[in-house]
Write a protein that binds this DNA or RNA. Sequence first.
RNA 1: UGGGGUGUAGCCAAGUGGUAAGGCACGGGACUUUGACUCCCGCAUUCGCAGGUUCAAAUCCUGCCAUCCCAGCCA
Length: 579
Amino acid sequence: MNHDREDKNTRIPAVVYGVTPEEEVTTDNEINHFIRDMIEEDMGPGGRYDGLSVHTRFPPEPNGFLHIGHAKAIVIDFGMAKIFNGLCNLRMDDTNPVKEDESFVRAIKDDIHWLGYDWDERFFHASDFFEEIYKGAEELIEKGFAFVCEQTAEEVREYRGTLTTPGKNSPWRDRPKEESLDLFRRMRQGEFPEGRYTLRAKIDMESGNMNLRDPVIYRIQFSHHHRTGDDWCIYPMYDFAHPINDALEGITHSLCSLEFEDHRPLYDWVVSHVTLPAKPRQVEFARLDISYTVMSKRKLRSLVEEGLVDGWDDPRLPTLCGLRRRGYTPRAIRDFTERNGVSKVPSMVDIRFLEHCLREDLNERAPRAMAVLDPVKLTITNYPEGLEERFTVANLPGQEDAGTHDITFSRHLLIEREDFEEDPPKKYHRLYPGNHVRLRGAYIVHCTGCKKDEAGNVIEVLAEYDPETKGGTAREGQKVRGTIHWLDEETAVPAEVRLYDHLFTVEAPDEDERDYHELLNPDSLQAIQAFVEPWLLDDRSLVGYQFMRLGYFIHDSQDNGRDHLVFNRSVPLKDSYKP
RNA sequence: UGGGGUGUAGCCAAGUGGUAAGGCACGGGACUUUGACUCCCGCAUUCGCAGGUUCAAAUCCUGCCAUCCCAGCCA
């Protein structure tokens, strides 16, 4: 057994987007679901595990990056342990060396830490227990519950039968156990080529459950394992290894997704036929799906490999690293998964709920700033040329300890093009000739007109300010319906802003029969040249900013330089304005 | 008559024999130096369908329907 003691060093660095250093994993959500009830009963008086403490595990296969679907499992696995004052292990399910790689191990650990969970020293690999698992296989052979089979993969498939017809026994099923034992040991010694033999559990070829039709539990594979190197040339199958790993780690509740439901009889078979120190229990729940995106490892991989997105951490992807780069916070993700609940109903959650959870978190802690995405000039015609005023504004209105920063004001400003209409629709209360509007934090101005080019496009908006309204405070009795954001043209800093939309144009791309390439949203990324407050040149909020009236944005973690600011829009603000 | 699951609002989801929680979305209003936030109000006479038991059924019984997963020497 090989605990990774250096693991303590893999804590992600203190400065990581989405989480503030002193932040703790807490929840205000009421966690109530059938798994909690079941555990409660199992641990209670007379229950299955009366007297033991809850022990769960999160067992990813290190062959890809974690996505928000995994986050649900992580929240459940670590969350249940926490609620019941138990423990949760992290285990790399590495029983198939041809698919797995050490590089993923690191990324997986970082993502889990980022989400706010920790496994202390309980970091395992399925491969830590290869010897014990092997012993279990020998035990099965000795008891007559397993045999070495010589059927080819093709023959195994034929003999397995179909969903509606029973299978047939392998001709090697009744091979004497001494012979099986000898062959199995020689398999381990590397005497036979891949595919020549397999070890199969002797259960029931006529079972309606395909998993019980003498499943292969060991296969020969001459691949280099990322951890055990070339020590082994036979590897246990998931169905055999998993229950044994669970038992050896002292897991009480082995929580997994619905598709393993009909593996449970096999899980239980292994637990009762192999001598083990504990009897873990498998419980299944529905995995998480989200609208307008894909969650399958295969599709995510091909999006990355075909260059359709900018790597595994593309902000449009549902991967945890992608969400992190997008500006999602662990708190929002945890909140989202908890509030979704846990059930056995295959579900497709509306992505707008995820967005809601992010806004709810960021609204409370993202500093406010101003940015103009589609600028047009605003000239304050009665403000002296060359004069500059400085205003101090709160980072987070209403929260004094969040600090302040300064903004400058002058005759030449930048505003959002859509905040001026020469001929406004009804109920429009932004700038239009004759209207009073507040420039947030500065002054109330009175729009006097605009200048246009030959083509009739507005190139400059004109207004006069009211010196009596400094700071944006209205005169006695004065009511100003519109407040807009703005930037001082003199001090505004150019920045690239990346606006994201759904990666797919349909709600359920995974269920669509069309090739998913056809379903990609061509406008999922729109990069524009915008302007932001100079303050953002040096400031780095770990939870990003709210660009007022626009949305939440965060410095891109990859592409920012001192002279090249890049912001990702995490999520736009809600907007109930209907022209 | 393969086996195993699941059906409560547009999307999640409580509910476990006493007369349909909550959230998201949506619609309306109040407030507002963000058309944000916040706050009010509205949103299932009905729980996949049909029978049955009961004073009483989303909850119990029977039948049906729909839908998901399983035929890797993947996990």
